[in-house]
Design a protein around this nucleic acid. Structure first.
Lengths: 215, 215
DNA sequence: TCAGTAATTATTCAAGTGTATAGTTAGAAA
DNA sequence: TTTCTAACTATACACTTGAATAATTACTGA
């Protein structure tokens, strides 16, 4: 008696959901939101279309999950390299800034993904929530690094001032990141991290340029 | 013999095209790209759907025209207030920066419109062309103002340095603009122009703060 | 080994989309 | 007035989309 091979494989919900999220992300990155249809996502995940509705109550929910995943991943990729405890605060800040302005964080695919999602933020409250949360999460980490670097340098600033620094530096990084991703050929390699270090340094009054050139 | 009233009015192509573009923009601003269907646009412009295809060879072409219109409009709104010839270069730069960071330029609708379009930039070469053109147009104007302000202050910088300044200041303005539009409740009124002036000033080494408080 | 159930497939539906095309009409020109 | 054409309407087509539903199947655990 030959038992015919299984027609599909059952996966735990958590794993399958993540697989679907990853398929969604790669699809959006390649073809934009427009290309990320339920059918196409299912095909890429080697699954039939009905399964998506089984795991996510609607397509919007899947998109939200993908958005959340992508933003966390970018924040992590920017934060991780600066988490070496032995380095000075200034050097950690410099690494943070530079990491956000070179691949894989600063990259056409990433920016394109982000732009695709930004669209839906206005329509969908859940997306708005994720947007707000990831924005403040990123900015708070940056503010903490700035604060440590200033203390280390013996500079005293008011909380208000610190907040303004964080907003400004965040904007500068975001702006450079976005432009680097949306118009890659307009900048030479290494140019954006360099500009980022100089600008953030100028804004908060510290020279980050020396500290930022890490392998 | 009563002659029944005309069923529609003929407009010159140019006017009708602009009306369609404006209908498209208001629709996208309200409901996002997804809501801007051919039928809905036609309805808003008090026209039947077929007319769109008559004036624009495809929907994409209409979208491109709307994108171009919106970006030019934003650049103009940022540039115009700084064009008073009698003011000093520094003051004109300050006004430029501040104008871009308050309404109507810095505004949820504007940002949302921009984000909607950014999506299509990657897919459509024509959109990419418009993106590139409007980006450089804005940045070049900013670079010119920076250059004049530095010369006025007796500061000499290399072309390379000037280019870096323009990229950095542009990124800072864009970043603040975007965040102010995407998360309006996160900033107090007047906070963004103030942060913008301080940051741009810090980056290029001039004190713009004094010069930027215009009515 | 044999339910039981959660994961998965298979199929259908109703609504909406951009596009095409043929016919109609306003309004200038002769 | 009549003619002519660019602007406009009306209608239908071909296709895609997200969602719903019912039927199957892989795996767990008793």
């Amino acid at each position: 008696m030959t038992q015919n091979p299984p027609k599909f494989r059952r996966e735990p919900a958590k794993q399958r959901k993540e697989a679907l999220v990853l398929a969604t992300l790669s699809l959006i990155a390649e073809q934009g939101v427009r290309g990320a249809t339920v059918r196409e996502i299912a095909k890429r995940a080697n699954v039939t279309q009905g399964l998506i509705r089984y795991h996510f109550s609607s397509k919007e929910e899947l998109i939200s999950a993908a958005y959340s995943h992508h933003m966390s991943s970018m924040t992590d990729l920017t934060t991780a390299p600066s988490a070496k405890d032995n380095a000075s605060a200034k050097s950690r800040l410099a690494i943070f800034v530079a990491s956000g302005l070179k691949p894989p964080v600063c990259d056409p695919n990433s920016v394109s993904l982000w732009a695709s999602f930004l669209n839906k933020v206005r329509e969908d409250p859940q997306m708005q929530q994720i947007h707000k949360q990831t924005y403040f999460d990123f900015r708070d980490r940056l503010e903490a690094l700035i604060s440590e670097a200033l203390i280390e340098a013996g500079v005293v600033v008011s909380p208000q001032q610190l907040r303004h620094y964080a907003i400004a530096c965040n904007a500068t990084i975001d702006g450079l990141w976005m432009e680097g991703g949306a118009l890659p050929e307009a900048f030479e390699p290494g140019e954006l991290p360099e500009i980022g270090l100089r600008s953030v340094g100028a804004i908060i009054g510290l020279d980050l340029h020396e500290a930022g050139e890490q392998p």
